[in-house]
């Protein structure tokens, strides 16, 4: 199935040049809060991608009938419904992860990326591009979360998805896990490092220096 340039941009743009986290700097709060381990990062990424794609499609279908003045309320209702479903599913099938994510599943409602995409894209585009846009932005948000979660869990607890990956002889030789990695500031610094690498590879994203 060939995709047109526009749909391709909607799907792939957010993964790189138009990334919601490292270019638009949205959704930072949850990126800091849930990434101390890889597993919650993955679950959060999937949850946001699903909610965003579904909300985009629903709002896009309703876009002709939503009165302009109450559109935010309608968007909130749609997102809140979807988040509640995700939250209940998580409680039923992945209770431990749900506990680790705590309020941040519920706070997907207020995730800036969601409102941003609904306002900026779904209200002006058809369901199919909106769906792709939702998937794209969800994955764009997700890969940052997973990358940050990967390094925080690896360096902070020496594990990945709960399995020990740093061998015992390293600890015997005096290696220690980095406690700072488990604290939120380090997530901010890791996001900054990703932004640093990304900007230095994409010259057109760099701000003009005077």
């Amino acid at each position: 199935m060939g995709l047109s340039t526009k749909t391709k941009a909607a799907l792939l743009g957010p993964l790189n040049k138009n990334n919601p986290v490292i270019v638009q700097v949205l959704g930072i709060c949850s990126a800091l809060a849930v990434t101390s381990k890889l597993e919650p990062s993955l679950v959060m990424a999937v949850a946001v991608t699903l909610v965003l794609a579904a909300a985009n499609v629903i709002i896009s279908l309703l876009r002709k009938t939503i009165p302009n003045r109450i559109r935010i309320i309608v968007q909130l209702v749609v997102v809140a419904t979807l988040v509640t479903i995700v939250s209940e599913v998580l409680k039923a099938f992945a209770y431990d992860v749900n506990k680790q994510l705590s309020v941040f599943v519920g706070l997907i409602v207020t995730n800036c990326i969601l409102m941003g995409r609904l306002e900026a894209f779904a209200l002006g585009n058809g369901p199919w591009p909106s769906f792709l846009d939702g998937i794209g932005n969800g994955l764009g948000y997700g890969w940052i979360l997973v990358a940050v979660g990967f390094f925080r869990e690896l360096l902070g607890s020496g594990e990945l998805l709960g399995y020990k990956v740093i061998p015992q002889f390293m600890y015997d030789a005096g290696y220690q896990n980095n406690g700072l990695m488990m604290l939120a500031p380090m997530a901010l610094i890791l996001v900054a490092v990703i932004i640093w690498v990304h900007r230095s590879r994409n010259k057109e994203l760099q701000e003009e220096t005077n």
Binding site: Q176, N178, G179, L180, M181, L183
Partner: peptide, 10 residues
């Protein structure tokens, strides 16, 4: 500060 928060036991 980095040492203090990263490796408190040391």
């Amino acid at each position: 500060a980095f040492l203090f928060f990263s490796y408190p036991s040391k």
